[in-house]
Amino acid sequence: MPDSLVIKNLNASIGDRAILKDFSLTVPKGEVHAIMGPNGTGKSTLAKVLAGHPDYTVQSGEAFIDGEQIIGQEPDAIARAGLFLAFQYPSEIPGVTIANFIRAAIVARQAKGAPFDAKAYYAELYAKMDALKMDRKFTARFVNEGFSGGEKKRCEILQLMMLKPKYAVLDETDSGLDIDALRIVSEGVNRLRGPDMGFLVITHYQRLLEYIVPDRVHIMYDGRIVHSGDKDLALELEAKGYDWVKKDLASA
């Protein structure tokens, strides 16, 4: 499918431990899909494997962004192809300011030697920071260094807004957020929703999905999707608990 994030029979491991087991999923552009599942089921691994993290080995399978194979590509090439990973635990980068960091990411997407419009860049950066209720002084702060959990997640969404990928994978973006931060981050995501971007929202809790209402909900267990449904599936899961997944769905 050309206008989709397509993951086909993906098998991946870390060390000799198999984590993704024939994982398949399609996220059409313009839709928001959520993946829920108990801890240790492979949700974050999926995010990292898609982003090309070197610690994971892909044994077999494929993943395509609008028809372009990303498995086997370098992480920076995957990102430029249009995949954005909002990290569960964003790294702190001492000495590198947010402004320079995002600037480098944008320059990497420009044609070689193309001029960089610093004025337009800052105007856009400030507008998006305002939308996320981030102090403009953050541009001069070092990436994630000394940030609270909420500030780190807002910074991830700021990058997402600035880089405008084709698909965004949000890995447990709700973890470590209080309700105000959750609302601000969700508003940022909702503002980006539209025909040009697809979302894969990974979460352990239903809470986030009250703010980012998904088109589809998938339940992941033991390295693959075991059940899919509409947004009400999240509520059903919340009511029945993950034991339901382990006992009933895993064998299905």
Binding site: P54, D76, F87, E92, P94, G95, V96, I102, A104
Partner: peptide, 30 residues
């Protein structure tokens, strides 16, 4: 360079050489 810091930069589309340079500049910034 710290591999997780490097991956974070790469995951934003920044090429390896530029990412290493940014990390080194950050290292000097202190």
């Amino acid at each position: 360079v710290n591999p997780e810091e490097l991956f974070y930069l790469l995951a934003r589309g920044i090429p390896l050489a530029v990412a290493q340079e940014l990390l080194a500049e950050g290292f000097l910034e202190e």
